[in-house]
């Protein structure tokens, strides 16, 4: 969905940045949002500093959106893996390049 939406906004998406935030992802504020998620889950840098940067660059409403999307996927990831809903073989085949690019093969084990 990231690829499709980046295309819709005519961004020059660099998908590898999702796995390596040191790469420029090519979307306004995108690397800041990657750092935001990392800060929440790994304490990679002070969360308050990321809040200030997001508010300055994208606005306070964007900070709330980012936080609630994070919350939503904390839920969706748990429900997907606990339910064991299968990923269709066609979907894995279609996303083969992405699986290799981001080294996702281990994620298919659940």
């Amino acid at each position: 969905m990231l690829r499709e939406s980046a295309k819709a906004f005519e961004y020059d998406l660099e998908m590898a940045a999702v796995g390596d935030p040191s790469i420029d992802i090519g979307i306004p504020g995108g690397n800041l949002l990657l750092r935001f998620v990392d800060s929440i889950l790994t304490d990679s840098e002070p969360l308050g500093r990321l809040h200030s940067e997001i508010i300055a660059e994208l606005g306070p409403e964007a900070l709330l959106d980012a936080a609630s999307v994070f919350g939503n996927f904390e839920m969706m990831n748990r429900i997907a893996d606990a339910s064991g809903i299968p990923i269709p073989a066609a979907g894995i085949e279609r996303e083969k390049a992405l699986v290799e690019l981001l080294d996702l093969s281990g994620f298919l084990r659940h």
Binding site: L2, S5, L33, T42, L58, D65, F70, N77, L108
Partner: peptide
């Protein structure tokens, strides 16, 4: 696009990175 707020591409960056950390293909 949420106005004001994030657009779809920015939203999907957050969802993708969260799923990476949680090791979830979805």
């Amino acid at each position: 696009r949420r106005q004001p707020g994030l657009n779809r591409a920015q939203i999907e960056i957050v969802s993708s990175r969260t799923s990476m950390h949680n090791e979830c293909f979805y």
